[in-house]
């Protein structure tokens, strides 16, 4: 059976993106953003852009998550948004 793996991964990308902007805990948002980057990395790899996937894995899923966690550590963990 043929598996449309890119569509499955794309669904996860969109789910992670929506979750990242709707969750109120900013630490959770940082982790969700890391998950988003990892799914995006899988999508690049499926499309054959291995160099871009490598960059996305190291920069997006790796270092930027750490930067976000560090910024949350030094500011507040709860967002004051009331839109959601």
């Amino acid at each position: 059976m043929y598996w449309p793996i890119d569509l499955i991964v794309l669904t996860f990308v969109i789910l992670c993106a929506i979750a990242a902007i709707s969750v109120k805990d900013l630490l959770g948002t940082a982790i969700l953003f890391g998950a988003y980057s990892f799914m995006m990395c899988l999508l690049w790899a499926v499309m054959g852009a291995v160099d871009v996937a490598f960059t996305e894995a190291s920069v997006g899923a790796g270092v930027s998550t750490v930067f976000f966690v560090a910024a949350v550590f030094r500011t507040s963990r709860r967002t004051k948004d009331s839109n959601f």
Binding site: V50, D51, F54, G62, V63
Partner: peptide, 17 residues
């Protein structure tokens, strides 16, 4: 192979982190 200065630099920096 896939990779280069940018990715290698980020991996080295993350080892420091």
């Amino acid at each position: 192979s896939p990779g280069g200065g940018f990715q290698g630099g980020v991996i080295f920096g993350s080892s420091l982190i």
